[in-house]
Design a protein around this nucleic acid. Structure first.
Ligand SMILES: [Zn+2]
Ligand SMILES: [Zn+2]
Length: 829
DNA sequence: GGCAGAAGATGA
DNA sequence: CATCTTCTGCCA
């Protein structure tokens, strides 16, 4: 459906995230808006008794046959359609791939705050009311009188709010509306608005201007000066700038306006988060090393070819990836095309932004959550209008409304944060590739520890890989020591700090060097571990660690992929030791222990509790950097970001939490974490030591992380994924049912399981795993059940999954519960 | 998702 | 019967 040929009916998706209305509705395009309605235009449409925001996704010559009484589009919201046809198509693809509603998919394309809210304001029709009152022909009930009195006060009254506060007023209000004494006014508002400021301009012809100047008395020399300055500096200048530049006051401007020399107008103001920064000369490209040059050439030639392509840039932090990105962007711009750079939210620091701004100045638009909504909106508009041709941002920047895209870079592509946790549950990597396919663009994926998905894509020959040298020289690799915690116990040490770690902490404290201690985010579920031999109960079918549950006095171990369960044990099945029990420590406990064992040490703790407020994350890191503490204790979040030159010891309190996450990605996560930690320690002159404490030192994820051998790790891990048929060899779709009533939630997933099983009789399309309780079996009073489906042929399975999903979510909604679906969930909770 | 209108539920 | 509550269908 072309946006050019305008047919009389528009197909509109209304902004309601419900399956029942998740289809286009047809509206007539009134004459007044002819030429203003395109694919991607936001409109206001009547929908039943209310008005809603909607998105135009297409046109048709005729309305749907069985629809009488077709309504008209009431308003067009933006001057330029906010979305391109490509983005509308992309939303459609997301709905297909992630089984999200069309409304949710389209809404995800907009920056936060760009969403029209409609409301109904009630006003008093005084003339009708007065007439009615005088005639005395109709009685007014006390409740009706109450409404009239409220409206007479004059403060704005909104229908939904009034009825929410006092539902009893519904019938009286309806009567008043019928009588005509109260009127409804539909209003449209939006959280973020375009900012306008007052500007002046002088549009007089030269002769008239000279004449006007001559008429100004000599003592009003300031007026003359200001008028001349404005005339010289441009057609329309914000008053604020005039006042600052000419050191004058508003009254001077006013006089000139009164004389007809200047005209005031409202102009759009850009809320620029980086105003007055990076304004100097643009930085020149740095010299490339041989490897960088090779990488750059490959990317540039791929872009020149103009076909969609994928390139994995594999190299550790500090191997010069950013410079390759920068020069690739320059090559992209030289082609007249545009670029997107995605960076994990946590790495999107001012320093990172600066690198791009210094090189490309205002051609760079930045999109991330720390900007105000207004700033983000204005950056987004610059992108849409084509004033900015490079976008740097976090996950959602993948939707930047650029046309003629030539390059998309995803830095740290293995990061979890590229998967959106809310609907639509998209993965930025997949979306980026979808856009690259459309534009014939190049997708560059950068990482030291590529995701199995990306590395496997390379193995299948669907992209190319460039290996950057590990580091400048092997020597600066930090010493990584793995501490066997089983031996600690055997030697009588029951503390959470092994003897070597204890010893090194004391040593660094004495030398006044800094220490970082990592603790994995505490598992949301617990597992049992033998302190003597390291045994962890695993599912015989899925090989993931079994989750410990205690209910009604029974202790069971359960696999939440397939539902396998077995009784818990109090004696190790492997070594018969009684030291087998649940495992898991929080940062708070480690902090207490640190205070007890090293009372002199100053500790900064960083976890969700201490970094809840805005900016606290950066503040704590800065404090540590300034030397206000000896030990930084935190979760994975401190693995990235700032550099700490004075850190000479990094300790991983326990690698086992990560290793035994009840998730088939546990080994991958552990390998990534440990590699990152090792990278953290070895960057500076101070020789870094990394200590990794674990009950499972022989595990391949730990061993290969110590030797920094990604390739060996990949080969072993992909074999396991292949054997167990896990992603990336299939797509894993996870349904989650939630309800206060446990039986109801279980019933839905069971019937969905049955239905899907019947449809997927051949395992070549999909394999349905048994429905079972989720790893978090109860959350906020709701019981949770899971159903996992291993999808081998997505195209064939999609319609079946969708139909099953729609049916069961309808059922769930009827009974006051919910069912969600997550395709390739990154964390299965 | 949310609104109107219908169909029950409660109390005098 | 008035009023409050829950249910059901539908939106172009
Ligand atoms: Zn044991
Ligand atoms: Zn299992």
């Amino acid at each position: 459906m072309s946006g050019k040929v305008k047919l009389p009916f528009a197909e509109v998706i209304v902004d309601i995230h419900a399956r029942e209305v998740d289809r286009p509705f047809h509206y007539r395009i009134p004459e007044a808006f002819a030429g203003q309605v395109h694919v991607g235009t936001r409109v206001i449409v009547p929908f039943g008794p209310r008005r809603l925001e909607g998105y135009v996704i297409g046109f048709s010559s005729e309305p749907e046959p069985d629809v009488k009484n077709i309504k008209e589009i009431l308003d067009v919201l933006d001057e330029q359609p906010p979305l391109t046809e490509e983005l509308v198509k992309l939303a459609d693809w997301m709905s297909y791939r992630y089984l999200s509603s069309k409304a949710a998919s389209v809404q995800a394309l907009f920056p936060a705050g760009v969403r029209a809210r409609t409301s109904v304001r009630l006003t008093l029709k005084e003339d009708v009311w007065n007439k009615l009152r005088k005639s005395g022909s109709v009685g007014i009930s006390p409740k009706e009188q109450q409404i009239l009195d409220l409206l007479a006060e004059g403060a704005p009254v909104y229908k939904d709010k009034l009825l929410k506060d006092a539902p009893g007023l519904k019938a009286p209000l309806q009567r008043l509306l019928r009588l005509g004494t109260v009127e409804e006014k539909h209003e449209v508002s939006q959280a973020v608005q375009t900012l306008y400021i007052t500007a002046v301009s002088c549009t007089l012809r030269e002769a008239d201007f000279q004449k006007a100047m001559d008429e100004i008395p000599a003592r009003a020399f300031k007026q003359k000066e200001v008028a001349r300055w404005i005339r010289m500096h441009g057609p329309s200048i914000p008053v604020r700038d005039v006042l600052r530049a000419t050191h004058t006051t508003y009254s001077t401007i006013n006089s000139l306006v009164r004389k007809g020399i200047l005209v005031l107008s409202q102009v759009e103001e850009r809320r620029n988060p980086y105003a007055n920064r990076f304004t100097g000369e643009r930085e020149r490209p740095l010299a490339l090393t041989g490897e960088q040059e090779q990488a750059y050439r490959l990317i540039a030639s791929a872009m020149a070819a103009g076909r969609p392509d994928r390139i994995l840039l594999q190299g550790v932090t500090g191997s010069g990836k950013t410079e390759i990105y920068l020069q690739s962007i320059a090559a992209c711009m030289a082609q007249g095309r545009k670029a997107i750079v995605l960076v994990p939210e946590i790495s999107l620091t001012p320093q990172m932004v600066e690198r791009f701004k210094r090189r490309f100045g205002d051609d760079v638009a930045v999109l991330h959550s720390r900007l105000s909504q207004g700033e983000r909106y204005d950056e987004w508009k610059r992108i849409r209008r084509g004033t900015a041709s490079i976008v740097v941002g976090a996950r959602s920047a993948v939707f930047a409304p650029l046309e003629n895209l030539g390059l998309i870079v995803i830095d740290e592509e293995h990061e979890l944060s590229y998967k959106q946790e809310e609907q639509p549950k998209y993965h930025a990597r997949e979306v980026a590739w979808q856009r690259a396919l459309h534009h014939g663009a190049v997708l560059v994926l950068g990482s030291a520890t590529p995701s199995l998905e990306t590395r496997f894509m390379i193995e299948r020959g669907e992209g190319r890989r460039i290996l950057l040298p590990t580091r400048f020289n092997k020597k600066s690799l930090p010493t990584v020591r793995v501490i066997d915690m089983r031996q600690e116990l055997q030697a009588g040490n029951r503390s959470m700090f092994s003897r070597p770690l204890h010893h090194l902490i004391l040593d660094r404290l004495a030398k006044q060097e800094q220490i970082i201690l990592f603790l994995n985010r505490r598992g949301y579920s617990s597992f049992i571990l033998c302190r003597n031999c390291g045994y962890v109960a695993r599912c015989p079918d899925c090989d993931i660690s079994l989750t410990y549950h205690k209910a009604h006095g029974f202790e069971v171990l359960r696999c939440h992929y397939c539902g396998h369960s077995e009784p818990s044990v109090s004696q190790c099945p492997s070594c018969s030791s009684p030291h087998i029990r649940t495992f898991g420590t929080g940062t708070q406990r480690v902090e207490e222990e640190l205070n007890k064992v090293f009372p002199a040490a100053r500790v900064i703790r960083m976890d969700v509790d201490t970094t809840g407020t805005k900016g606290s994350h950066e503040r704590l890191l800065q404090q540590f950097r300034d030397g206000q503490a000896d030990i930084l204790l935190g979760t994975q979040m401190i693995a990235k970001g700032l550099d700490f030159p004075r850190v000479s010891l990094v300790g991983v309190i326990t690698a086992d939490t990560s290793l035994n996450l009840p998730d088939f990605r546990a080994a991958e996560r552990t390998f990534q974490l440990l590699t990152q930690v090792a990278g953290r320690a070895g960057r500076h002159e101070t020789e870094g030591v990394v200590l990794v404490q674990t009950y499972h030192p022989e595990h391949y994820a730990i061993q290969y992380a110590v030797t920094q051998d990604y390739e060996d790790f990949y080969r072993q891990e992909i074999e396991i994924r292949r054997t167990l048929d896990n992603p990336p060899l299939c797509d894993l779709a996870v349904f989650t049912a939630q309800h206060e009533n446990r039986a109801a939630a279980e019933r839905w997933v069971r019937s969905l399981e049955k239905r899907l099983r019947a449809e997927f009789h051949t395992a070549s399309v999909a394999e349905v795993l048994p429905a079972c309780p989720a790893p978090i079996p109860k959350l906020q009073g709701k019981h949770r059940y899971h159903l996992c489906v291993k999808v081998r042929d997505f195209a064939k399975a999609q319609p079946v999954l969708l139909a099953g999903y729609l049916e069961s979510s309808r059922l769930a909604r009827e009974q006051g519960g919910t069912i969600t679906i997550d395709v390739n969930a990154q964390m299965i909770l």
